[in-house]
Simulated assay, not measured.
Amino acid sequence: MKQVAWNSIGLDFWRLGRDTAKPSSETLKWYTHDVNEQSNVLIIGGTTVDLIKVIEEIGARVTVVDFSSRVCSELQDYVSNDTKIINQDIVNDFKDWGETYDLICSDTLINRFDTNEAIQFEKNLYCILNSRGKMKSTVKIGMYPMDHELLEYARSNNISTDFWDEESKTIDYSMAKPILEKGILPHGNIKRENLLAWYGNRGKEKRFDENDLRLLFKSWSDIRIISDYDDRVKVEATK
């Protein structure tokens, strides 16, 4: 289902979406700290074009993996021919690649997962990192404005809020489809019909706090969480 969501917008997320959805220049510096020409870097999520390009400029070996066939296809027009693009779901269709990485990056990706997906994501990353390799990711803390908008609309119109589970802090956008038309918020210049398809097929997403992230990477040798901007944090976990 989530592949369908991202196939509906592809790289429009990067080209037409909100600038606040992109990593800042300071965040890009954080990602690339200690990256050099000998580094083998995996970037999960092909919509983070700015991150891909700055790592390419350093001369590192870059691989990008994304489960959206549209994202992978469109990405070829924006990245170096030396960058390897893999159309695969690193969570649900993960296989032993027979390759390890010094650094794995993802940008606001963990908060797109439900609890089980996040756990499998952490396990798979651990398998393909070199000894003492690092995982870096920004994570949106708490609920999105869209989450609040949908809940407010549902409550004010006496509509079920079953799409939100308070105990697990998980929203299921597919269950909110009947009210998406009324509660959807703009996302840059992405077309409204594409936004509806994107949200309607995103399925379950957990809303994380810092304690959730520390628990997710508790078996790693080290985890550091620092403020990014607004309601995001930068997470650096060392194998």
Score class of each variant (00 low, 15 high):
Trp30Asn: 02
Glu152Tyr: 10
Phe67Asp: 08
Leu150Thr: 10
Glu99Gln: 11
Leu75Thr: 03
Ala197Ser: 14
Asn194Trp: 07
Leu196Asn: 06
Ser68Lys: 01
Arg112Ser: 07
Phe208Trp: 07
Ile223Asp: 04
Leu180Arg: 08
Gly59Cys: 03
Asp172Ser: 13
Ala154Phe: 08
Arg224Trp: 00
Asp162Glu: 14
Leu75Trp: 08
Val35Met: 01
Ile184Pro: 01
His187Tyr: 14
Leu213Ser: 02
Glu210Ile: 12
Asp102Thr: 05
Asn157Lys: 14
Val41Trp: 04
Phe113Pro: 00
Val235Cys: 10
Pro23Leu: 10
Ala237Asn: 04
Ala197Met: 13
Tyr153Gly: 10
Ile110His: 02
Asp82Asn: 15
Gly10Ser: 09
Gly10Tyr: 03
Ser156Asn: 15
Arg15Trp: 01
Glu152Asn: 14
Asn194Ser: 12
Leu180Ser: 09
Asp212Glu: 04
Leu129Thr: 03
Pro23Ile: 11
Ser106Thr: 12
Asp172Gly: 06
Asp93Tyr: 02
Tyr31Cys: 03
Val65Glu: 06
Asn157Ser: 11
Asp77Trp: 00
Asp107Lys: 00
Ile225Tyr: 07
Gly98Glu: 01
Asp19Thr: 14
Trp14Asp: 11
Leu103Ala: 01
Val35Lys: 01
Tyr144Asp: 09
Trp14Ser: 04
Gly203Asp: 08
Leu16Gly: 02
Asn124Thr: 09
Glu37Asp: 00
Gly59Glu: 06
Ile85Gly: 03
Asp228Gln: 06
Asn40Leu: 03
Arg155Glu: 15
Pro178Val: 13
Glu57Phe: 02
Glu26Arg: 08
Asn189Leu: 14
Met146Glu: 10
Leu195His: 06
Trp6Lys: 08
Gln88Phe: 06
Val35Glu: 01
Glu167Met: 02
Phe217Cys: 11
Glu26Ser: 14
Ser106Arg: 05
Ser137His: 11
Lys169Thr: 04
Val65Ala: 15
Ala21Arg: 07
Ile86Cys: 06
Arg18Cys: 10
Ala60Gln: 01
Trp198Leu: 14
Asn40Val: 10
Arg112Phe: 11
Pro178Glu: 07
Asn87Met: 05
Leu180Gly: 06
Arg202Val: 00
Gly183Leu: 11
Asn81Cys: 12
Met143Val: 02
Glu193Phe: 09
Leu216Lys: 11
Ile119His: 06
Glu181Trp: 04
Gly203Glu: 10
Ala21Asn: 05
Phe208Tyr: 15
Gly200Thr: 07
Ile104Ala: 05
Asp231Tyr: 07
Asp228Asn: 14
Met146Asn: 01
Asp114Leu: 01
Glu122Ala: 14
Asn36Glu: 05
Tyr173Glu: 04
Lys136Val: 12
Lys140Asn: 08
Lys182Tyr: 15
Gly10His: 02
Asn124Ile: 09
Thr238Tyr: 01
Leu28Ile: 10
Lys95Asp: 11
Lys191Arg: 12
Glu149Met: 13
Lys53Val: 04
Arg202Trp: 05
Gly98Cys: 08
Phe208Glu: 07
Ile225Phe: 11
Lys169Cys: 10
